[in-house]
């Protein structure tokens, strides 16, 4: 949570999200992949040491680290999952899942990164396995595979 990993060794990265969003990035040619788990859309000028926490700080940092390892931005593709509405509080503040999804899509678009697959929204948590060399994303709920992107 509020973290990301960038790897070039083909490992499978795993995280579990509810209203948070998991962002998988891959440059399959370079064999470099990354998985991020963001909690909130924007840092809004707030100082934080946790850059993986916000979509608008995590995504640029993930891309930068991928480039440092040899990836090329024009080859990077994305898959995203999560952003569920886990329960209905009367206040709107808990539709944060939707806000997270919108922010992630917008930022990826700004960087010209195509989103190849999404499994977002609904009202359940997801465990995400991201295969960093191929960009395959497996979505599980309580150890049962729900979907592959």
């Amino acid at each position: 949570m509020a973290e990301f990993r960038v790897v070039n060794n083909g490992s499978v990265l795993v995280t579990t999200v509810g209203s948070c969003v998991a962002i998988g990035l891959v440059d399959p040619e370079a064999g470099i992949g990354a998985l991020g788990h963001v909690m909130l859309p924007n840092h809004n000028g707030k100082q934080t040491e946790i850059i993986g926490k916000y979509a608008d700080t995590a995504i640029p940092a993930m891309i930068k680290e991928m480039e440092m390892k040899g990836a090329r931005k024009d080859r990077i593709k994305a898959k995203i999952a999560g952003g569920a509405k886990m329960f209905n509080f009367p206040s709107n503040s808990f539709s944060i899942g939707e806000k997270n999804i919108e922010a992630v899509r917008k930022i990826l678009k700004e960087y010209g990164i195509e989103v190849l697959g999404e499994d977002v929204g609904e009202n359940y948590g997801r465990t995400i396995e991201f295969h960093t060399s191929t960009g395959r994303m497996v979505i599980k709920k309580a150890n049962k595979v729900l979907k592959e992107l």
Partner: peptide
């Protein structure tokens, strides 16, 4: 749901 997904909206 899964424990960590249950707590995540409050943490957010």
């Amino acid at each position: 749901d899964m424990g960590s997904a249950v707590i995540d909206p409050i943490l957010i």
